[in-house]
Simulated assay, not measured.
Amino acid sequence: MGTTQLEAVQEPKYWHLKTVLNDALDSEFEVGEILPNERDLAARFGVARATLRQALEQLELEGRLQRRRGVGTTVAPPRIGVSVGPSANVWPGAVRDAWSTVGCVEAAAPAPIAALLGTGREEAVHTVRRERVVQGQPVATELLYVPTASVPGLSALLTPAEHGPAVLRELHALDLEGEDRAVELGSARAEDARQLDRLPGAPVLVVTTRYYAQGGVAAASVATYRADTCRLTFGDSGALEVLHDQPDTRRAS
């Protein structure tokens, strides 16, 4: 396709450019292929590099592109349907849980988490770090915060490798009374970006969950999912396949 000059349009120029780039991705590029550099792309489409960056950022947010460390901007594979959890309330670490525990520390929680838990700012909590891998690639990382009062039977003589699994076992001894969950768009922090093999600031979906037991909040988790590769699914009925070329047609898979 030859050089395309954008004419005056009602919508923002970067948004129109995003549509043009999206069509080019479908017709000219393969999954995993590296895009030309920004200078060449800006010249091809007759736009400023700032406009091009806005369009590329939007396509990354929509899951069409990925920025990869040491590689550049590549065409993203189709999004993976990732189940956030069944509709029935279950503790983290239950049977068929897709997460792996990678570490645990005991320290004061950040102020926003302490507010979620209803604990004092200086009160120690167990922070279990978990990760999730789908089809060989990391798709999510999670911090599960558990107040010491929720797991009073936890042994003080635990090795680092035993700490996280032991916290989860103690949680399972409680009767889970319910949970609530919120999902919001965010940007990857440096540590999460490293865990997810993304660049800091990459778009992510943040799922915050509170677990209730014994009449109060027994634990809280903050799970960070790669927004460029994930479609979050909820419930027991399986993933919902969204046919993007037919927006009004949806079917359960």
Rank of each mutant, 00 (worst) to 15 (best):
M1E: 10
G2P: 08
T3S: 11
T3A: 11
T4F: 13
Q5Y: 09
Q5C: 01
Q5M: 12
L6Q: 06
W15K: 02
L17E: 03
L17N: 07
K18M: 09
T19S: 06
T19K: 07
L21Q: 02
N22G: 08
D23E: 15
S27D: 15
F29V: 00
F29R: 09
F29D: 10
F29L: 06
V31T: 15
G32T: 09
E33R: 15
N37A: 14
N37D: 15
E38Q: 04
D40K: 13
D40Y: 04
L41Q: 04
A42C: 04
R44G: 02
A48S: 14
A50L: 00
T51Y: 03
T51N: 08
L52G: 09
R53Y: 11
Q54A: 06
A55K: 07
Q58C: 04
G63E: 05
G63P: 03
R64N: 08
R64M: 12
Q66A: 10
R69F: 09
G70Y: 02
V71S: 00
G72A: 10
T73M: 07
T73S: 03
V75W: 04
A76F: 02
P77F: 06
R79W: 04
G81T: 00
S83E: 13
G85M: 01
V90H: 10
G93H: 11
A94I: 11
D97R: 01
V102M: 05
C104I: 00
V105P: 01
A108L: 07
P112G: 08
P112A: 07
G118R: 12
T119M: 06
E123V: 00
R132I: 11
V134W: 04
V134H: 11
Q137R: 09
Q137M: 13
P138Y: 13
V139W: 06
A140G: 02
T141C: 12
T141R: 04
T141D: 12
E142P: 00
L144T: 01
A149S: 14
V151P: 13
V151R: 09
P152E: 09
S155E: 08
L158S: 08
T159H: 08
T159C: 01
T159A: 10
P160S: 05
G164F: 08
P165D: 03
A166K: 15
V167E: 12
V167F: 04
L174Y: 09
D175N: 08
L176D: 04
L176M: 09
G178E: 11
E179Y: 07
D180G: 11
V183P: 03
E184N: 01
L185D: 06
S187G: 02
A188K: 02
R189W: 05
A190Q: 10
A193C: 11
R194T: 00
Q195G: 05
D197Q: 14
D197A: 13
R198E: 12
L199C: 07
P200I: 00
A202H: 07
A202Y: 06
A202E: 12
P203F: 03
P203D: 06
V204Y: 02
V207W: 01
V207F: 04
V207E: 07
V207K: 00
T208Q: 10
T209I: 14
Y211P: 09
G215R: 10
G216R: 13
A218G: 14
A220H: 01
A220V: 13
V222C: 04
A227W: 03
D228T: 06
T229G: 02
R231P: 01
R231L: 13
L232H: 01
D236S: 15
D236M: 05
G238Y: 06
A239T: 01
L240T: 15
L243M: 03
Q246S: 12
D248I: 11
R250F: 15
A252Y: 09
S253Y: 05
